[in-house]
């Protein structure tokens, strides 16, 4: 009898301990790492798009998810350290929006799932193939470099007599072979591409001086964290000062005074990237989540800038435009 009572008492204690342990265990908060090579202000609209995408899936920041933001402030040197920080925080998934950031996170972890919305993950060798990524990285392509050809075509359509064109770029960005490909397309269109390298912030003015010397009739900017994020406003201003018709890859450039842009809607891409984050949080493995390709491309034209440059936009180009700023 006494043995039975002791056994019952021990059983009760164990049960109580079990309940307490369960009660004390906090509800698991999902943590998402967000690594950007740029700065929060210039990226605000993309962050919002990503948040919106998560919200549609029921993940509300501060409520059931926590987003750990890390910005390199256009200093690529800081990216590896920030990536390591996120990995040390043991976040559930890391979302990266640029190639250098992806590179940094890729080097920091092979376990934490990474969702990227940068460039061409196949060409960058982040994934084995679009259909079956095979590693811990998946996400969306943005065709940024592939669309360089289309951008050159658009410039040529605006100015059929164009023969010299300047390319503002940071060597090796966005892909090592992007510059070479761009030169080849320019050649096929009967144009010569002049290189204007910007490795650091202070290279910009000398670069524009060189462009002026090369007598290039138009400007194309290749994507790099430095150029499209930090220096974008100054590039637009300098292009205006130098009366250079310029084409960019994002709609926000014509809004700031640039002539035109052609590319994927990056906000859309980031919003869509949230669905990848959602799938991973629900247990999907990045290795089997195929990389999605965008189907929508935006052509934005700033008519005011065109007028200031004395350019007449052909009807068929204008027709293709998804946004015209007057």
């Amino acid at each position: 009898m006494i043995q039975l009572m002791i056994a019952l008492a021990i059983g009760n204690i164990l049960l109580a301990v079990g309940f307490l342990a369960e009660a004390q265990q906090p509800a698991k908060i999902i943590r998402i790492g967000y690594l950007s090579a740029g700065d929060p202000t210039s990226r605000g609209y993309r962050i919002d798009a990503f948040r919106d995408g998560l919200k549609e899936l029921g993940y509300i920041e501060g409520k059931n998810i926590l987003i750990e933001y890390r910005f390199a402030q256009t200093d690529p040197e800081r990216l590896p350290e920030l990536a390591r920080e996120l990995v040390a925080l043991k976040v559930d998934v890391i979302f990266v929006t640029s190639r250098p950031a992806t590179e940094a996170v890729k080097n920091a972890t092979q376990i934490i799932p990474i969702v990227t919305s940068s460039g061409d993950p196949v060409a960058s060798k982040y994934v084995a193939g679009l259909a079956q990524p095979g590693g811990n990285i998946t996400g969306l392509t943005n065709f940024s470099s592939e669309l360089v050809g289309k951008r050159l075509e658009l410039l040529k359509e605006l100015m059929p007599k164009l023969t010299h064109i300047a390319g503002l770029h940071t060597p090796g960005e966005p892909l090592p072979d992007t510059w070479g490909n761009t030169e080849a397309v320019a050649r096929s269109l009967g144009m010569r591409l002049h290189s204007a390298e910007v490795r650091v912030r202070d290279d910009l003015e000398p670069a524009f001086a060189a462009i002026k010397k090369s007598r290039a009739g138009a400007l194309i900017t290749l994507r790099s964290p430095l150029l499209v994020k930090d220096l974008s406003k100054r590039i637009i201003d300098l292009a205006g000062e130098n009366r250079l018709p310029a084409i960019y890859d994002e709609e926000r450039f014509p809004r700031l005074g640039g002539l035109m842009s052609y590319g994927v809607n990056l906000a859309d891409v980031d919003r869509r990237a949230a669905t990848y984050v959602g799938k991973i949080l629900k247990g999907a493995k990045p290795a089997s989540l195929p990389v999605e390709q965008p189907t929508k491309f935006d052509l934005s034209i700033n008519l005011k800038t065109a007028k200031a440059l004395g350019l007449k936009i052909p009807a068929h180009v204008l027709m293709e435009a998804t946004a015209v700023i007057e």
Binding site: T295, K296, A315, H316, V317, M319, E320
Partner: peptide, 18 residues
């Protein structure tokens, strides 16, 4: 050469055509 206009229009009208 202006037939290009028609083709561009085609791309605008039908987003599925790439």
């Amino acid at each position: 050469p202006d037939y290009q206009f028609e083709l561009r229009r085609l791309l605008v009208i039908a987003p599925a055509i790439s």
